[in-house]
């Protein structure tokens, strides 16, 4: 099949950036989207041009490295998949495809399709962990976790931190990411001691990074490759209100 690509090329963070159009023939419908980009890069290298920079690693939808807006949709048209799991058979022959990096103030573009997502790491750093020391492992079975709580925690823990929720949100909010992290630990007994402090610290960091707020649009859930539900944002809001009230009382 044949495709026409309009790819965002930007040399450096300071560069203006623009769409550059490329045509590719002989694309196999069985190729993954990233393989199609590999093919383009091979051609560019042969022509002595600079290849398109993009992130990728596992190519199995586990690691969350690959991240691009494809025709305006985070990770492209298929639901519940990452870019690396997207195949060219999802596009018609002769398709025009626009490829852009994630766009959000908190995700500055480094080069072409690569943006700096370390803001998400800093949100975790602000409180998305359980701060017990190393060594001195707890005694056996001192932390019974009901099966139902485990299932809920796991639904949230599926987040791979790709940032699609931010890219899809008109407010560029990382609320679904934040909610997944908060909700995961909120459902587990080991997350309880720091539960309220965690949500306040993480939300404060979220705001400091320049992410927007949630206005219940729901694009994030639709874009999430792990199909994490916005219910977790409700959990986040409940925890945040409780934490704020408690801090007033104290």
């Amino acid at each position: 099949m044949k495709v026409t690509l309009h790819i965002w090329r930007q040399k450096s963070p300071a560069d203006q950036g623009r769409f550059v159009t490329y045509s590719l023939d002989q694309v196999s419908p069985d190729m993954s989207f990233l393989e199609m980009l590999d093919m383009l890069n091979e051609q560019l290298i042969q022509q002595g041009e600079e290849p398109v920079a993009f992130e990728h690693d596992c190519r199995e939808g586990i690691c969350g490295s690959c991240a691009m807006m494809i025709n305006g949709l985070a990770h492209g048209p298929e639901r519940g998949t990452t870019t690396c799991q997207l195949h060219m058979r999802s596009f018609p022959d002769g398709a025009e495809i626009y490829v852009e990096p994630w766009r959000a103030r908190a995700f500055p573009i480094l080069k072409d399709l690569v943006c700096d997502r370390s803001a998400l790491d800093r949100i975790i750093q602000a409180g998305g962990y359980v701060s017990v020391g190393t060594g001195g492992a707890p005694d056996a079975n001192c932390l019974p976790v009901p099966k139902t709580a485990q299932d809920k925690a796991m639904d949230a823990a599926q987040c791979i931190g790709c940032g699609a929720c931010v890219a899809a949100c008109p407010n560029a909010s990382a609320m679904l990411f934040l909610a997944a992290k908060v909700s995961h630990l909120a459902h587990l007994p080991q997350g309880q001691p720091e539960r309220h402090e965690r949500v306040r610290k993480m939300l404060a960091q979220h705001d400091r990074e320049g992410f927007g707020h949630c206005t219940n649009i729901g694009e994030c859930e639709a874009a999430c490759p792990k199909e994490i539900s916005v219910e977790h944002i409700a959990q986040l809001n409940r925890d945040y209100i409780a934490a704020s009230l408690l801090s007033l009382v104290r």
């Binding site: 962990y129 359980v130 017990v132 190393t134 492992a137 707890p138 005694d139 056996a140 079975n141 932390l143 019974p144 976790v145 009901p146 099966k147 485990q150 925690a153 796991m154 823990a157 995961h184 630990l185 587990l188 080991q190 997350g191």
Partner: peptide, 22 residues
């Protein structure tokens, strides 16, 4: 190994559970 797994659990790792929560 058992101590390392329990430590991981204490750090917030999710595991599948037995009926009584272990």
């Amino acid at each position: 190994a058992p101590a390392r797994v329990r430590e991981l659990e204490a750090w917030g790792a999710v595991f599948d559970r037995t009926a009584d929560g272990r």
